[in-house]
């Protein structure tokens, strides 16, 4: 086993020399410029940087929602840059939970059903699905809102449902792109407390983009992205 490989064993996320370019109307924009990143398992990291610096782009690559122009990306042991779209989709269902700034819940489903949704991708009985979704909602403190539809919930509650949905599959890695961006201070604090708890008690690796220095303080590591590289 080479030194390099053994190093990535303890890494939830390992990024080497990743370049990401967007081409629009003949113009090529290099957003990530030979970026390297190692996120150890069980760490809680905040990613900061000016608007347009490529934070979302980096998260999308980690989540396998997008592919790098070049470079290696290993997340939860999988080499994403070598996998097909379909493979990545299946992988994502089992290994990554994503929380967006806009909560993206399905309005026709109750809180409980929204949380059950990712479990439809796995073989299990409906009773088991329901039980796991209930546990996830308990973790985020919403056991009393299971039958509520998203329109009946506050923004903070919606985001907590989204977090329950992100963790219900028990993924190793949780990714948040400005998860508190739309929330007031109190709701934001609750979400951040939840992240801390998921990190500490359940050992989830969390990487979260934020513009809010207070939010970033909750993380164990703060990284800054500027001009396509991490400072």
């Amino acid at each position: 086993m080479s030194a390099e490989q053994s190093k990535s064993v303890g890494s939830a996320i390992s990024i080497k020399g990743v370049v990401k370019e967007f081409t629009r109307g003949g113009q090529t924009l290099r957003v990530l410029n030979s970026l390297d990143l190692e996120v150890p398992e069980g760490s809680f990291e905040a990613l900061m940087g000016p608007s347009g610096s490529g934070k979302s782009t980096l998260l999308n690559l980690i989540a396998g929602l997008d592919k790098p122009t070049s470079g290696e990306i290993t997340v939860a042991g999988a080499r994403l840059d070598r996998m097909s779209d379909a493979e990545i989709t299946s992988w994502r269902a089992a290994n990554v939970g994503i929380v967006f700034q806009s909560y993206n819940l399905l309005p026709v489903l109750t809180a409980l059903e929204n949380v059950e949704l990712p479990l439809l991708l796995h073989k299990m009985t409906s009773a088991e699905r329901k039980k796991r979704a209930q546990i996830a909602l308990e973790i985020v403190g919403l056991s009393d809102r299971m039958g509520h539809y998203p329109r009946m919930l506050s923004g903070g509650q919606e985001q907590r449902v989204a977090i329950a949905r992100a963790i219900v599959n028990d993924p190793k890695v949780i990714i948040g792109d400005e998860p508190t961006g739309d929330l007031d201070r109190n709701s934001a604090d609750e979400i951040l407390k939840l992240f801390e708890q998921l990190n500490r008690e359940l050992g989830k690796t969390i990487i979260m983009v934020t513009h809010d220095p207070e939010a970033a303080e909750r993380a164990t590591v703060i990284r800054r992205l500027n001009k396509g590289v991490l400072a």
């Binding site: 989540a63 929602l65 779209d85 379909a86 989709t89 299946s90 994502r92 269902a93 089992a94 994503i98 967006f100 993206n104 399905l106 309005p107 949704l117 990712p118 991708l121 949905r165």
Partner: peptide, 14 residues
């Protein structure tokens, strides 16, 4: 559209 996009993000196949 964005509901389908988020379902894809969750891991639903095309």
């Amino acid at each position: 559209t964005n509901e389908y996009a988020s379902m894809k993000a969750i891991g639903f196949h095309a």
